[in-house]
Amino acid sequence: MHLLLDILSAMLLLSGAFFVFVGGFGVMRMPEFYTRMHAASLTDTGGAALILFGLMLQGGFTLIPLKLAAIFLFLFLTSPTASYALANAALLSGVKPACRNETGKAFPGEQPAKPKPKRKSASKAVKARKSAPVKPPAGKPAKRPAKKPTKKTARKKS
């Protein structure tokens, strides 16, 4: 019984470790922001769940599995929420998902979801900025245009 638990939790831990690593690799290698986020957010939840379940099996009948379960629950709630907030922030400030059709030519991603009337001005700003990119402050050669959506970079990498 003990051995069985050990084997099971080892499997869970190792597969969790593999998931986590794959997620990291995806964040490293994916071509642009939204795909990276996809890689990160999936494995954040999946890998974490596997590892935490693996540990839970080792905890015995104490408070430990309970704490691990709480950690899992909170991660399960917060991690996707954080991803949502992040994606929303990116979309709001004009980072577009880079998609491409068969000809290899990139086309702009879909427009952000129909804005509620409350946020009318915000989406207008997004449109306005698309036509007139914001310059970095004068006298500052933007070596790394971190602020600007980088369709170009993304295309080059893929």
């Binding site: 997620g23 990291g24 964040v27 922001f33 990276r36 986020m37 990160a40 954040d44 991690s79 954080a82 991803s83 992040l86 922030a89 990116a90 980072v95 790394r144 245009p145 971190a146 602020k147 600007k148 959506p149 980088t150 970079t153």
Partner: peptide
């Protein structure tokens, strides 16, 4: 590496 600031936020969160 960035390149966008959101990549950095993503890195922090992860």
């Amino acid at each position: 590496a960035g390149p966008t600031i959101f990549d950095r936020v993503l890195a922090v969160n992860m």
